[in-house]
Design a protein around this nucleic acid. Structure first.
Length: 573
RNA sequence: GCCCUUGUAGCUCAAUGGAUAGAGCACUAGUCUUCGGAACUAGUGAUGGGGGUUCGAUUCCCUUCAAGGGCACCA
C-alpha cells in the first residue's frame, strides 16, 4: 500500500514538474491524521521557495484527479502534511486476507532460501540457570522465530561451558559437602532440578573458599587440572554425574520455555579447534607477547583493544574457544547469517574476536551478528552466582506460576488443567517482561514489580485472546444468515490489524522483538475497546458476521504475534 | 585515563528527523453492558543541563553532568 501511495505522489509531482524523491510515506501516530501521511510538500517547499501548505494543496489537487480505490480521502494538515485515509473496501479486504492466510499471516520472504543460526541461552553445567539465562533464552527464541517468519531456515544453537575453574569449584564443593562425605553420590537424591540446585549451591560454596582460603585455592586448581586430563577416577565420576544432571535440569527448563535446540556446543570441544587456528595464524594475525599469544585489535581499529588468546601457560582462553566455535558453526552449517545473543558485558570482547576472524575470513565479516541484552540486576545490587545471591530461573518461573494458580483458585477447573495453564501464563508473564523493552539496556529486577499480570503484560494479551475465543465458540451455534452488513465507520481495530506484516519486517530489520510486543499491546487494547462497546451476539445485530470476522482476524494476528514472542495461548485462564 | 552503552511522567518502559512525546503501574473520578472485571472510560504527570544543524530534534553533531559495562593472560 505504501508503495502505491508513493507512486501516486511521484506521478503528481511529475505533472507539477517537481523533481524530488527524498520524501517519506509513513503512518501518522494519531489516527485522526489519516492512515498514511507524506512530508513531500515540506521537503520540496524550500527549494521551490514556496509555502509548504500551498504546495501541499497543489499536490493534493493532482492526487485527487486520479485517486486509487483504496484511498477514500486526501487532506492537507499541520505544517504541510498530506494525509491519506484508506477506504472501507481496503479494510474489509484486509480482514479477509488475514482469514485466508491464517498462520502465514504476517510472514515475509526477506530471507527466503537463507539459513540463519541463532546461538542463545549459554548456561554452564555445574552453575545455576539464573535469570540472565532466562533473558537470553526469551530473546534468542524470539529472534529465531522472527527470522523464521521472514522465510529463513533457522538453526538454534546453545553453547555451554563444561570445563574450567567453575567446574572445579563445584566439584570441590561437592566433595566437601555433608551429603557427599556421608554417603557418596549414591544417596544424593531428589528431583533433577533439586539436585541441580544443590550442585549450584556447592559451586557457590567452593567459590567462596577459593576466594578466601589460599590452601583450598590450590586444591581447587589441582581438581581443575584433573578435570582437564581426566586423571582421577573419583573426580571423573563426579564430573560425569554432575554434568549430565545439570544438563538434564536445563533441558526441563527449555521444555517449559518452549525452546528446542538443534545444536549443543561445548567449550571442551572448541578449545582444540580454536587453538589450532590461532597457532596457524601467528604471526600474520596473532602475535606473541610476554609468552602469550595475543591479538592487537587496536592495529585494525583504534576502538578495539588487545586480548589474550593463548595464555603464557599455553592454555587457550575463552577468545580462542570462541574462534573454534564460530569456525565450527560455519563448517557444519555454513549459515548465511550467524547470530549470537549474550549479555552486554561481552560486547567489546566480541568485537575484538570477530575482528580477528574477519581478518582470517573476510567473507564472514558481514555474516556474524552479535546482539546484546542488558544485565538482569537485583534492585539490591548485582547478582553473582559465585556469591550465591542469585535468583534461579526455575524459582522465578515457579513464583510466576504460583501467582497464576492463586488467581485461579476459585475457578472450577481441574487441578491438572490449572497446572498446565499456570505454566503457559506464568512463562508468558516472564517472557513478556523481558521482551517488552528494547535490547541493550539493563533490566532492574524488582521482585514485587517485575512480573506483571495486568496492563502491559503477557497475560493481558493472552486474556484478551481467550475472551475473543470464548465469543467465537458461543457464536458457532448462532444463525448468522442475513446478518452480514458492513458498517460505514471503521474501527480502530481494523486500522491496526493490517499493519502486522510491516511490524514483523521492522522488527526483523532492527532485530528487536519489543516492536512486536508494543504492537500487540496496541492491538489488544483496541480489541478491548471494541469488545467493551459492541454487542456482538444479540439477535437483531445486522453486523454480526462482520464482527465475528473481525474477531477471527484479531485472534489470528494475536496468535501469530504471540508466537513470535514465544508465547502460547491457553484455551481458558 | 581511553573506548562502548544508557539518561523520557513518582516507578517500569515506548516513540522509523515530523503534527498535541505514547503505554502500563501508582494516584483521582467513573463503568457491576447482556458475549469472561487478569477488563473498560476519563483525569493528573516527563525528554539530565547547555550549545548547534534543520521548515521541523527525544531522535543527528558538539559540550557538560550522571549511571552501567569493557580495557592482557577469568568466562
Amino acid at each position: 500500500m505504501k508503495e502505491k501511495i508513493q507512486e501516486q505522489i511521484i506521478k503528481a509531482l511529475k505533472t507539477l514538474n517537481i523533481e524530488e524523491n527524498n520524501f517519506s510515506v509513513e503512518h501518522p501516530t494519531d489516527f485522526k491524521n489519516g492512515d498514511y501521511s507524506t512530508n513531500v510538500a515540506m521537503v520540496c517547499a524550500k527549494q521551490l521557495k514556496t509555502n509548504p501548505r500551498d504546495l501541499a494543496d497543489k499536490i493534493k489537487i493532482e492526487l485527487e484527479k486520479d485517486l486509487i480505490k483504496e484511498i477514500s480521502k486526501v487532506e492537507v494538515a499541520g505544517a504541510g502534511f498530506i494525509n491519506f485515509y484508506l477506504s472501507r473496501e481496503f479494510f474489509t479486504e484486509s480482514v479477509s486476507v488475514i482469514l485466508n492466510e491464517k498462520d502465514n499471516w504476517g510472514k515475509n520472504n526477506l530471507l527466503s532460501g537463507k539459513k540463519v543460526m541463532v546461538e542463545y541461552t549459554d548456561p554452564n553445567p555445574f552453575k545455576p540457570f539464573h535469570i540472565g539465562h532466562l533473558m537470553a533464552n526469551a530473546i534468542g527464541e524470539s529472534i529465531s522465530r522472527i527470522v523464521e517468519f521472514s522465510g529463513a531456515k533457522t538453526i538454534r544453537a546453545n553453547y555451554q561451558g563444561d570445563v574450567g575453574p567453575h567446574v572445579a569449584k563445584a566439584i570441590y564443593g561437592i566433595l566437601n559437602s555433608k551429603e557427599y562425605s556421608e554417603v557418596g553420590l549414591s544417596n544424593i537424591n531428589g528431583s533433577v532440578s533439586e539436585v541441580a540446585n544443590w550442585i549450584g549451591k556447592c559451586y557457590s560454596e567452593g567459590s567462596n573458599f577459593y576466594d578466601t582460603d589460599e590452601n583450598i585455592k590450590k586444591e581447587i586448581e589441582i581438581i581443575n587440572k584433573a578435570v582437564y586430563d581426566k586423571s582421577d577416577d573419583k573426580i571423573n565420576k563426579i564430573y560425569e554425574w554432575g554434568r549430565s544432571i545439570t544438563l538434564e535440569a536445563f533441558e526441563e527448563i527449555y521444555k517449559l520455555l518452549g525452546t528446542k535446540f538443534e545444536y549443543y556446543f561445548f567449550e571442551s570441544d572448541m578449545a582444540k579447534i580454536g587453538e589450532k587456528i590461532v597457532k596457524e595464524n601467528v604471526p600474520n594475525v596473532f602475535t606473541e607477547s610476554d609468552g602469550a599469544i595475543v591479538f592487537h585489535g587496536e592495529e585494525y581499529d583504534k576502538k578495539l583493544h588487545t586480548r589474550v588468546f593463548i595464555n603464557s601457560q599455553g592454555l587457550p582462553t575463552y577468545e580462542t574457544k570462541e574462534i573454534g566455535l564460530t569456525i565450527t558453526k560455519f563448517e557444519k552449517e555454513n549459515p548465511d547469517i550467524s547470530i549470537i545473543t549474550t549479555a552486554i558485558e561481552q560486547a567489546e570482547y566480541m568485537k575484538v574476536v570477530q575482528k580477528s576472524i574477519s581478518i582470517m575470513h573476510p567473507d564472514l565479516e558481514s555474516r556474524m551478528k552479535h546482539i546484546t541484552h542488558g544485565m538482569m540486576k537485583l534492585s539490591t545490587g548485582k547478582m553473582s552466582s559465585r556469591k550465591g545471591n542469585i535468583i534461579t530461573g526455575e524459582s522465578l518461573l515457579h513464583d510466576s506460576m504460583d501467582i497464576v494458580l492463586e488467581k485461579m483458585k476459585d475457578r472450577e477447573i481441574s487441578e491438572e488443567e490449572k497446572k498446565r495453564i499456570s505454566e503457559i501464563v506464568g512463562v508468558s508473564a516472564l517472557k513478556y517482561s523481558i521482551l517488552r523493552s528494547s535490547l541493550g539496556s539493563d533490566i532492574i529486577y524488582d521482585f514485587e514489580k517485575s512480573i506483571s499480570f495486568d496492563g502491559d503484560s503477557g497475560p493481558y494479551l493472552q486474556y484478551t485472546s481467550v475472551r475473543a475465543n470464548s465469543i467465537l465458540k458461543k457464536a458457532e451455534n448462532i444463525n448468522t444468515n442475513g446478518k452480514n452488513e458492513i458498517p460505514e465507520n471503521i474501527t480502530e481495530l481494523e486500522k491496526i490489524l493490517y499493519k502486522f506484516p510491516e511490524v514483523v519486517i521492522y522488527s526483523y530489520n532492527e532485530l528487536q522483538p519489543h516492536q512486536i510486543a508494543t504492537y500487540l499491546i496496541e492491538l489488544a487494547s483496541a480489541f478491548n475497546t471494541f469488545y467493551g462497546n459492541t454487542q456482538i451476539l444479540v439477535e437483531e445485530n445486522k453486523y454480526m458476521s462482520y464482527h465475528l470476522n473481525l474477531i477471527k482476524a484479531f485472534n489470528q494476528t494475536m496468535k501469530n504475534g504471540l508466537w513470535l514472542l514465544g508465547i502460547e495461548i491457553p484455551e481458558r485462564m
